[in-house]
């Protein structure tokens, strides 16, 4: 599943924003066609590293909107390599990376 990361440095601070394509099924919604509950499938953890150093960890619940959006700021500079990894409750994982502009 795809992910989009934007990271921009200004005055020694990097502003990082990301969106991860993920359905974030709560497990409480019924499928309109089958009438059966759609099983929960949601991202539980997102870890972001900059040049290998952990800069942000998000632990999420089912109440995060579909295609989760996250933004945060850390001390860094243009050229820093950002890596984002996520894991959902079914064990599925995803990865994305970008270079800070």
């Amino acid at each position: 599943m795809s992910m989009k990361i934007k990271a921009k440095a200004s005055g020694g601070v990097v502003k990082a924003k990301m969106m991860i394509k993920h359905p974030m099924h709560t497990g409480m919604v019924k499928d309109k066609k089958t009438g059966k509950k759609i099983p929960a499938k949601f991202i539980q953890e997102v870890v972001v590293t900059a040049n290998g150093k952990k800069v942000f960890v998000a632990n999420l619940n089912t109440s995060i909107s579909k295609d989760p959006f996250l933004s945060f700021e850390f001390k860094g500079k243009a050229g820093d390599k950002l890596e984002v990894t996520w894991k959902d409750n079914t064990g599925a994982t995803g990865k994305g990376e970008t270079v800070v502009k």
Binding site: S2, K4, K17, M18, M19, K21, D67, S71
Partner: peptide, 12 residues
């Protein structure tokens, strides 16, 4: 709009 939900779909 700061990070609009359609962007990943524009890429697709």
């Amino acid at each position: 709009e700061d990070f609009p939900p359609y962007e990943i779909y524009v890429d697709e």
